[in-house]
Design a protein around this nucleic acid. Sequence first.
DNA 1: ACCTAATCGAAAGTATTACTATCATCTCAA
DNA 2: TTGAGATGATAGTAATACTTTCGATTAGGT
Lengths: 225, 225
Amino acid sequence: MAWEIQVKVNENLYLRNPENSELGKNIVNHGVQMIDQMGLEEFTFKKLAARLKTNESSIYRYFESKHRLLLYFFEWYWRWMDYQLMFNTNNVSDPIEKINILLHVLMLKQDNMVVPGELMDKEALHRIVIKEASKTYLTKHVTEDNQKQFFKPYKDFNAKIAEIIHAYNPDYKYTRSLGSTVVEMIHYQYFFMQNLPSLTDFGTSKDENEIIAFLKELILSCKRN
Amino acid sequence: MAWEIQVKVNENLYLRNPENSELGKNIVNHGVQMIDQMGLEEFTFKKLAARLKTNESSIYRYFESKHRLLLYFFEWYWRWMDYQLMFNTNNVSDPIEKINILLHVLMLKQDNMVVPGELMDKEALHRIVIKEASKTYLTKHVTEDNQKQFFKPYKDFNAKIAEIIHAYNPDYKYTRSLGSTVVEMIHYQYFFMQNLPSLTDFGTSKDENEIIAFLKELILSCKRN
DNA sequence: ACCTAATCGAAAGTATTACTATCATCTCAA
DNA sequence: TTGAGATGATAGTAATACTTTCGATTAGGT
């Protein structure tokens, strides 16, 4: 093929690069499927090994723990998101249109860049990020993991949101906090809408577009007139 | 004493009411301390039993699992918050002042109602809620737990926030979602400020009052002029 | 074709967790 | 004084989250 886009993940997250072997690719792809289906707590390397008809120890040769595998997905997701945002906002100069695109990218409602040969199930990954991502940093070793740069893609993505908000609203003081609010809330409002609907205004419609509308209005209305 | 205020927790959360015995009270009070100090994942009933110089099995007679104990704290916290909000907004009619009080209550910066004989460490509990609360509902059995009404106090508190927002801004369509955004974000922004500061605008000052200012402005600016 | 290193799978082992079950003791209220 | 309820000690279970060892297979370089 004439070109290729590759998501490059922090090397410290794995022991052996899963991209470089069939087994590695299977671990990642089936890992996403399984965590999506059974939830992070039920998921074990033993079960994954059984599904791949291999041995637990083989998986441990790629990832030193379940937590690192989750961090791998988390990194992968935000690097991919970063690319999607860059791609979809290319040649767009209107700040409001950029905000609009941002929200659609975050909700996985953009035109997906199809990468040839790419096996990662983006929808399953998106569901994992919604439900499990906060478990990557709500731990007692956040600081350590942060020093190892495991949250860098997430923080970089946030910085880009802050920039977009700044372009729309240069006098606003809380661009970073509003940015992280939007990212977290696009996931939480979705989760609440599905599971604890009275915490949202979308319990009846269960329409993701309403979440986008809510957050868009939230960002736009922060501008003083 | 002439009066007493008691936080009443859903009976399905415990096997034996911990309020009714010394051991029960110790489980609850030392449980809060330990989870605060070592984090939820490190905390076990065995360690708690060792600290109380009792046996694991005795603790299991009060709470059928660690998760239920966490839910107990979560319920307790939101019922107590509910009382604090009611108490502190009593006789206040100005909507903006109510919003202000709400944010200070949520940040534990209100005048604390001191309940005589009350042992629960509110500051430790508050830290637990910041760091561990989302783990109560980001599970595969949310729906079950929700049916058992375990999230009722949290949802009730949210409904009150929605009312307060509505009183200030009657035309606003997203009162519930904005309410849950504010509650979640007062905790997340605090956590980010301490642990992943680049996700906020408060990394340098580390000042909780700035979080309150950010959220206050966020709520107030949603009103159309 | 041959050697070597890397990779893999199988099996077993370890420490810990999250419980459950049994039983003896202790206390306190009728 | 009797007996119900609460407690404490011990033991046991199934599962998790790994680690270690070892032998077989495979792949790459000369």
